[in-house]
Amino acid sequence: MKRLFPAPLLSLALWLLWLVLNLSLSPGNLLLGALLGVVAPLLMKPLGPLPVRIRRPGVMLKLFLRVGCDVVSSNIAVSWTVWNAKRRPPRSAFVKVPLDLRDANGLAALSMITTVIPGTVWSELALDRSVLLMHVFDLNDEAQFIEHFKHCYERPLMEIFQ
């Protein structure tokens, strides 16, 4: 049964969505919706998430609190920089951050953290996952930024996922 319906709730949701979008309960729409509900999850199964094994949940809580604090402080810093842009324009730059983290789930979490913190954007990851290219809105010291990024985000994720 799991081979035919790898995600039964998704199959049901797709079938219902098809019916709602077509506003019809005709036999053809019922059949097409059911076909979509069966075929789409089968085709998307290889794209499913990798199994996650969290090794240190306490570190995860500390990281969550750290990210929350950094979101608030970065919002204030970016707002202040934008407010004072005429006096001192922001020093935007692309930064290459060497990575030690290789776990796909850890990298996904790192990309979300990078994107949610104002002033930083995940731009590109090297094919071998060794270097991350980031855009930083206002950069004072590149070496200090890299050390902060690795210490505050990458190391805890390595403890959690690797």
Rank of each mutant, 00 (worst) to 15 (best):
L133T: 15
I160T: 03
V116A: 11
A34L: 15
G106H: 06
V95L: 11
L14M: 11
C152I: 00
F64C: 09
L43T: 01
G37A: 05
A143H: 08
E124Y: 09
W15K: 03
I146G: 04
P90Y: 07
R3W: 13
Y153L: 07
S123T: 12
P90G: 03
L133Q: 13
L10F: 14
S11Q: 04
S130D: 06
L47W: 09
R55P: 00
V95T: 06
L125C: 10
L19V: 12
L32R: 09
R129W: 01
V52F: 01
D138C: 04
L61W: 10
R88E: 12
K45T: 13
K62E: 09
C69A: 12
L31K: 04
A108G: 08
P27Y: 07
V20M: 14
W122N: 02
L107T: 08
A85M: 10
W80P: 01
I76R: 06
S24Y: 03
A85F: 13
L139Y: 05
A126S: 15
E147W: 00
R129I: 01
L36Y: 02
S74F: 10
V38G: 06
G37L: 05
F64K: 00
V67E: 04
V121C: 12
K86L: 15
F149L: 05
V82E: 02
L14Y: 06
D138N: 13
S73A: 10
K2R: 15
L35E: 01
L9M: 13
P57G: 03
R129D: 09
P27L: 10
V38R: 05
L19C: 10
V97E: 07
G37Y: 04
V67H: 04
V72D: 04
L125R: 06
R87S: 12
I160F: 00
D138T: 05
E124V: 01
K62S: 12
L139D: 01
L42W: 10
M158F: 02
L35M: 12
K45S: 13
A77S: 11
K86A: 14
W18C: 08
K96A: 14
P6H: 12
H135S: 09
L157D: 02
F5L: 15
L133I: 12
R3K: 15
V59P: 02
V121N: 07
A13M: 11
V20W: 14
L31S: 08
F64D: 01
P98W: 07
L32F: 14
E154C: 10
G33E: 02
G106E: 04
I160V: 08
N22A: 14
L125E: 01
S79F: 12
V95Y: 11
W83F: 15
C152P: 00
K96V: 09
V59Q: 09
S92Y: 04
S24W: 03
Q162H: 10
L157N: 04
S11I: 10
R102W: 00
S26N: 12
R56Y: 03
S79G: 14
K62R: 11
W18V: 11
S79K: 07
V121K: 05
P156L: 05
L36W: 01
V97R: 09
S26R: 03
N75A: 06
R66T: 13
M112Y: 10
L133M: 13
L125D: 02
A13R: 07
V131L: 08
R53M: 00
L36D: 02
P46Q: 09
P51L: 08
E147A: 13
G106N: 07
I113F: 06
R56T: 01
